[in-house]
Nucleic acid binder design. Structure first.
Lengths: 148, 148
DNA sequence: GAATAATAGTTGACTATTCAAGTAATGTTC
DNA sequence: GAACATTACTTGAATAGTCAACTATTATTC
């Protein structure tokens, strides 16, 4: 496959094309679904990160959400002043700022997850569980491969 | 699958998790690869859109790159003042601004595609052509489904 | 254990993106 | 064909994201 040359190259056979395109539409739809909840995509990423663990440092959230650290600082500050999260220095290491959801943040999280599930349901309607599993497997592989 | 509830939910079995994660890393890597060429991700999206067609309107590019129209206006203006693209009103409809690559823009495009191909090669190393084809097929389906 | 290095985060100046409101050209309706 | 609506952008004010430089805390080295 030679995407740069003059040879016959079909964009639709290039996975990056579809991944970019899908990702863009996913963000559009999430943005739309989050608006009534009073959230944006950046905040949604923080809620996703805080789904599994109760407390995370700002760096850990930035890493998980694949955002730069200063960006994440400011997103967290916004969410803090909106009352969605609470921040406190970690007792064992005062350098790290630990972030956790407030009850209000948990409520927003539940609403956001419900919205995400609705989008998921219609997006994968008619796709078999086996195909979803294959997709996850392949995505995990290429996500690992791309970093080098 | 109930991503919002208290039930056992494994993020790694949720395709949106991987799609978001992959997409983030892809953008990181492209950003890195484009820097020496003097391009950013926004400009790369324009070059991608202009790969197949010689001339596109600002709206068409915005739509293809899944960006908002005012954003695209400004990206195009930046690229125009960098000498990468040229703009002219469409003769048959003076409202539309047609954008095409300059020779300089074509050169940048070739370099960017080469960089993208290098990333693609290492990302999909060891992935069979059949799996790539399945991935494309599934991505096309879910990209169509998500919009409703 | 004082000096230096490394880590975690924040801040401020700069750039990029977005929303809302504007302009200009084309379509439509009566 | 004049008035109104729609389309295709563009612009300016507000917001968000980024880079470089800074502070504070912990780790390491001599």
């Amino acid at each position: 496959m030679d995407a740069g040359g003059e040879t016959d190259f079909n964009m639709e056979e290039w996975p990056f094309y579809w991944l970019t395109r899908f990702s863009g539409r996913y963000l559009q739809q999430m943005e739309l679904a989050l608006k009534p909840i009073g959230l944006d995509v950046a905040q949604w990423r923080v809620l996703m990160a805080l789904r599994d663990r109760e407390r995370l440092s700002v760096s850990e959230i930035a890493d998980h959400a694949i955002a730069k650290l200063p960006t994440m600082t400011k997103i967290i500050k916004r969410m803090e002043s909106d009352g969605l999260v609470a921040c406190a220095p970690r007792p064992s290491d005062q350098r790290v700022t630990e972030v956790r959801l407030t009850p209000e943040g948990e409520a927003a999280s539940r609403e956001a997850w419900a919205a995400a599930n609705r989008i998921y349901a219609r997006t994968f309607e008619g796709v078999s569980a086996r195909d979803v599993a294959s997709l996850n497997r392949l995505l995990r592989t290429i996500t690992r491969n791309i970093v080098l």
